[in-house]
Structures are given as C-alpha cells and as structure tokens.
C-alpha cells in the first residue's frame, strides 16, 4: 500500500495532466466550454425553483439544492467510472503506470467541477441570506465524499473491464442509492418515522451519503439533524469503501492488459 502511494506520488505530473485532460475533453467542441460548469448548477437552481413553486413541493429550495449538488459529485463519478479504464484502453495497452491513476484523476476532475459548482451554490445561498453553520466542517466533509467516490469508482471501473453488465447495474444502484439518501426529501422524514424495520434504518445511516449530505446542510444551512457523529460514521464507512476499492482494483489491474 505504501509503495502504491509512492508510485502515485512519483507520477503526480501524470495525474495532473489526466485531470486537465478530463476537464478539457468534457467541454471540448462546446462553444461555452468551461462556463458550463457554472451554468449547469445555475440552471439547476432556476428550474427547481420554478417547479417547486408550481408543484408546491414541501421542501425548502436551499436544502434541496445543497443536496442535489452534493449528490451530483457522486453521480458523475459513478457514471464516469465506467469509462475510466475502458475509455483509456489506448493508454493501458500501450504503456505501464499505476492504473489507479486513471480513476483517481477522474474523481479529482469531478472534484474540481464540484468545487466550482459550489461557488454558484454559495453565491445563491448568500443571495438567499441563509444562516451559514459549521463551515469549518467543509474540508472534512469533502475528504469523506472524495474517499467514498474514489472507492466506488475503483470498484466499478475495474468491474466494467470484465463485465459489461456493470453499466446496467450502475444505473440501478444509482437510483436506489438516490432514494436511500435524503436529497429530495428532508432527513426528518426518516428519522421521525418509526414504521421502518430496524435494519432499514441501520442501512440508511450506514449509507455514507446520508451523513455527507446532512453535513453539507449543517455547514451551509445550520441544519441540526443528524449531528456530527453521523459525519464521523460516514467518514469511517467511506474510508472502508476506499480501501476495499484499492484492494480489489490492485488485484484486478493485473488482467486489464489481457482484457482490453
């Protein structure tokens, strides 16, 4: 494991170029280019605000927007993880370097996108004059989510090399995960509801995204539920995901060259 980190550090220049490439290719051939990173969340807020008022959806817009932006970081990583290895077959079959750099750089590029969309969200929240809360938690929340995103990306990017069923599995996983996370409903809905069997509640709070999304709301909106201890739980689970991901990926990467 230490050797892996050393190798990754030695190839940091490669990782940087790959992050740059990831970002560049996403907006290549588009007229507005990088502005889409900012325009995306802006339109997202606009559209949701229109529909929330039309549908009289019982949720506060800032709460919804923070949840969706946070969810999008994971969703983008899951979607991109399919092609992190398969889409770089030309690099994998032609040269040797720690393969983990490919999904790692993809997650890093999505992190950059995520942070940029944060700017839009913060601007929006400032306009809305919300009560900012525990902003000092932000670095810790972002680290937690990064670890989680990397972990699942490693698993799915390796899996897609061997099983093309991965693509279909991911869309199902994403849908179920989305509703298992308090994105478009407040967490109170689950916390105050006693009808769920205990194991559903356990699974719900073991889902690191529950803690992560709630923590963003704590930081930005002074939400009180469900407390910092859930962020700590999410942190632990996310790092478990990351290390399992690294372990499985390291095993699988030996066969990438034969499969691609």
């Amino acid at each position: 494991m230490i050797k892996l980190f050393k190798d990754i550090w030695r190839k940091r220049e490669l990782s940087m170029i790959l992050v740059e490439r990831n970002l560049k290719i996403r907006y290549k051939n588009s007229a507005l280019g990088f502005f889409w990173t900012l325009l995306g969340p802006l339109f997202l807020i606009l559209i949701y605000s229109v529909f929330l008022s039309v549908l009289r959806f019982p949720m506060n817009l800032p709460v919804l927007v923070t949840g969706i932006i946070a969810w999008q970081f994971l969703a983008m990583c899951l979607g991109d993880s399919l092609y992190a290895i398969v889409g770089n077959a030309n690099l994998v079959t032609k040269s040797s370097f720690p393969r983990i750099i490919l999904p790692l750089s993809m997650v890093k590029a999505n992190l950059v996108n995520f942070l940029l969309s944060f700017i839009v969200v913060i601007a929006y929240l400032l306009v809305k004059r919300v009560d900012f809360g525990a902003l000092y938690l932000l670095p810790l929340i972002i680290i937690t989510q990064f670890a989680l995103c990397l972990g699942v990306s490693l698993l799915f990017s390796a899996s897609n090399v061997f099983f093309r069923d991965t693509e279909h599995i991911i869309s199902i996983v994403m849908l179920a995960w989305f509703f298992m996370t308090p994105v478009i409903y407040p967490i109170g809905l689950v916390m105050d509801n006693a009808v769920f069997p205990w194991w559903v509640t356990v699974a719900y709070f073991l889902n690191p995204m529950t803690g992560i999304v709630s923590a963003y709301r704590m930081a930005f909106l002074s939400a009180h539920n469900p407390g910092t201890e859930f962020l700590m739980l999410s942190l632990v689970v996310s790092f478990v995901f990351m290390f399992v991901g690294i372990f499985v990926f390291q095993k699988a990467e030996k066969k990438f060259g034969d499969e691609l």
């Binding site: 290719i25 030309n90 040269s95």
Partner: peptide, 14 residues
C-alpha cells in the same frame, strides 16, 4: 519507453 503495435498511447481528442 515503448512503441507497441503501431502507436503510442495517444488520445485522439487531444
């Protein structure tokens, strides 16, 4: 350094 099977690992879009 290698040049395997007619081509470096180039990315077509770059």
């Amino acid at each position: 350094s290698s040049l395997l099977e007619l081509g470096a690992g180039f990315h077509p879009e770059l």
